[in-house]
Structure formats: structure tokens, C-alpha cells
Design a binder for these strands. Sequence first.
DNA 1: CATTATTCTATAAAATTGATAGAATATGTA
DNA 2: TACATATTCTATCAATTTTATAGAATAATG
Lengths: 145, 145
Amino acid sequence: MLSKKAKYGLKAVFYLARNYDDGLVLIATLAEEENIPRKFLELILLELKKNGLLHSKMGKGGGYELSKPPNKITVGQVVRILDGPLAPLGCVSKTAYKKCEECVSERSCEIRRIMQQVRDATAKILDTTSLEEARHSLFEIEKIK
Amino acid sequence: MLSKKAKYGLKAVFYLARNYDDGLVLIATLAEEENIPRKFLELILLELKKNGLLHSKMGKGGGYELSKPPNKITVGQVVRILDGPLAPLGCVSKTAYKKCEECVSERSCEIRRIMQQVRDATAKILDTTSLEEARHSLFEIEKIK
DNA sequence: CATTATTCTATAAAATTGATAGAATATGTA
DNA sequence: TACATATTCTATCAATTTTATAGAATAATG
């Protein structure tokens, strides 16, 4: 399950993607528009900033914006920063591998094998979809209807 | 992330799949062989039983076994029982749909759209892989090496 | 220097997870 | 029947994670 933190973070980041050309956006605006608890959002944005996804400016006229254009940021990046590795098990994580404690033999573990597939499928989707692509594919769908 | 509960449950179920022809297995055996805390495992097995995946017998000569052959039980069934829906968001769950609270329009939500893809990819893997298939595909891989 | 807005640090309530304890119930057998 | 065995049920609990909130510190602007 995606945490609320990641969900909030994605909402904020997509908002910033939609308004990329308009420059800095206030936390207050973001919080209000996307129905996110203000103080919680502050922490989330800060974390995304520290990981290089956002740029901010303090003081009057300040706010947040994407540090790169929306086609250079993937959904997978956002999720990993806020929720950690995509893998359902530490032993199949590429970005944060961790050996199973109970496991005797990794190679002969059926669970590892199938969760590896899940991780790969998830990563393929989230790491190849940029914020822009996610918006665009949504638009395509809307058009058809 | 898969919970320990689900991981333990899968370990137990795969053990029972491997020993399907030998009949009932003691909780104690399962716990020891798979390094699972005994008392915790009891609850897990009971839950799997109540959901129709396992059969048990009390008293002397008792124990647990799969209620169906290993090719009739999918990994997805086990995971759903122990960890709940596969979907990363309630609003894309087929088995346990739940509307997002903050969300204004589901149709125009980029997050929903991409998480839908993740859910579908995950479900495709876990719901089409039976315990038997998981074991078999593992065997195939081992053979190649 | 006053205002604005982000940043930092600390704290805390609520929920979930992982686990244990012990009594109750059912089964087989001597 | 009595005993040993093994699952089942109920209750509880510690630890961790999640979801926040509060307030002071820092930076930028005019």
C-alpha cells in the first residue's frame, strides 16, 4: 500500500508539474488545493527537496517548484524517496537489498522468485513513467471518452 | 512491502505444497523448519484455514495440509488473505474498492491511473501463478544454472 | 526592520505489526 | 475413561510506523 505521505507527495508534485511554467508555488496553496494537512506537507516537500526533486526559495515571493522539467522526473523517484524501495521484499530490492533473516537459500526460495517478478513489473511502470507522461496518458484517455 | 505475516504464511504454504503427498504436517514442524515463531504461525494458519486454503485436524495425528492441490491455489490468494488487497491504493482495488478521501475527480487523477497499472501488473503475476507453478518455474531456473 | 515563507527540531496520538500466554476444544489410544 | 496430543480461541502487549502538530529558527524581500 502506498502511504498517505507518498500519496500527498505525488499530489503535490503533479500539481507542480501542471503549473511548471508559472514558477514558485506556496506550500499553503498546495495544501489547500490538494487537501493535504499543511504541516505534514511541509515535511514531505522538504524531503523531496533534499533528494533533489524540488527547488525552493524562502521568504517573501518564495515557494516550491520542480527542480527539473516534468519529463525528467519519474513517479518511481518520488515513491522511492517517500516510501522507500519498490520491492515487496528486501531480498529483491535493487536500490536497497537486504538479506532475509529466516531464509536458508535465496536461490531456492519460491517467494523471492515471484516477488522479484512483482518488483520488476512495478519498477518498469514507475521508473519509465515521468510526471509528464503520466499526465499525458491521462489526457489521452480523457479524450477518447 | 510484504508483511512478515504474509511472508511466513507463504513459507508455510509452500512447505505444505512440497509435502502435499505426505498428508498432515504439525505446526511445530512447520515453525521449526521455516524459522517462524510458533505462536504467530498458529494465527496465520488459522486465518488461511478460515479462508478455505488449508485443512486441519485436531488432536493426536493431527496437523495442517493444503485443502486443494498446489496447482489450485495461487500466490495472490495467500497474499490477499494475509495482507489484504494487492492494490497500492484503495481506489484501484478490484477486491476492496475504496474511494480516496481527498480526491476530487477520480477520472482526472494521474496517481490513480498509474497505480491502476501497478495493481494490474501485480495481480496478473500473483493471480496466475499457482503454488505449483511457482515451484516449477524455480526448478526450471535451477536447472539452467 | 517588519513581513513573509521555508526550514528545523521536537513531540505525540493513532494505527499497525509482530508476537506471546494460557485456557478451551477436539482427537486418538492405552 | 483417562491421558497425551494438537489445534483453536481469546486476550493482551510491546515495538514500530504512520500521520500528524507546535513552535522556534532562518532566510529573503522591500
